[in-house]
């Protein structure tokens, strides 16, 4: 791993929704051009971590520094403009906009040439090209996920947080998701991957972070996370 200043440094992050605290003192570093797999059972706080970093929900303690900026002080649009792209859990598309308009929305933050981005997206996901004039809300769940992912691949952020992008997809589609994120990495994009396929995510990533009930219960280099460890923290089923 590189020894440069980290791209993202999270320290003692705490988050609450109203009265219920969802994250307690979570800390980790992410080097430039690396990948982190965030694992944990349902309700562990993975999604909450992603939302907090992208400015969707406020934190109530700790710090997060991204490329020299205090992330917790930025609003969501500014976080995006600073180069952090969050692909939210579930169908992260605008249902009322067409496929093409969804992609155009993704480009509004980066004032770069529009057409290369669109072409790139349609090239990776030909199915989207076929449906470019269809409202995104009428796509199948898997197609919506592809569309969401395409939004990350057509621009070049510094960091992508992908929250359960493979959820509910066919095995072949899951392969596409992993391949796409690998391609992003090849282009120098760092990735925080929140995944249900723990083994696969750890193979993909350099670092691992396991959350449990809002706390970090294990973190370390991804290859050190053996079967036994996954069993202990995630239970049998999740360690697939």
């Amino acid at each position: 791993m590189s020894t440069d200043a980290p791209l993202l440094r999270v320290k003692d992050l705490a988050v609450r929704y109203g009265s219920a605290q969802a994250l307690f003192d979570v800390s980790f570093d992410l080097s430039p051009n690396s990948a982190l797999a965030v694992l944990g059972p349902n309700g562990a706080g993975k999604t909450t971590l992603a939302r907090t970093l992208s400015g969707l929900v406020p934190s109530c303690g700790g710090s997060a520094e991204f490329a020299g900026q205090d992330l917790l002080k930025l609003t969501a649009p500014r976080v995006r403009r600073a180069g952090l792209l969050h692909l939210p859990e579930g169908r992260g598309v605008f249902p009322g906009l067409t496929v093409q308009e969804n992609l155009r929305m993704a480009l509004t933050a980066d004032k770069q040439a529009r057409n290369p981005g669109l072409e790139r997206a349609f090239e990776i996901f030909p199915v989207l090209a076929e449906r470019r004039r269809q409202p995104a809300g009428t796509l199948s769940g898997g197609e919506q996920q592809m569309l969401s992912l395409a939004r990350a691949l057509m621009v070049s952020p510094r960091l992508v947080i992908a929250d359960e992008m493979s959820l509910g997809l066919s095995p072949k589609a899951v392969d596409i998701v992993f391949a796409s994120l690998a391609r992003a990495r090849d282009n120098g994009v760092s990735v925080i991957m929140i995944e249900q396929f723990a083994r696969r995510a750890l193979d993909f990533a350099d670092q691992g972070l396991i959350l449990h009930r809002g706390r970090s219960s294990w973190s370390g280099p991804a290859q050190e996370a053996g079967e036994e460890l996954l069993h202990r923290y995630l239970g049998g089923a999740a360690a697939a």
Binding site: L56, P77, R80, L85, P88, G92, V93, F94, T108
Partner: peptide, 13 residues
Amino acid sequence: VDSEALTSLSGTN
């Protein structure tokens, strides 16, 4: 109109 949260995630205030 569709989603305020997604709009801000797209970098639009």
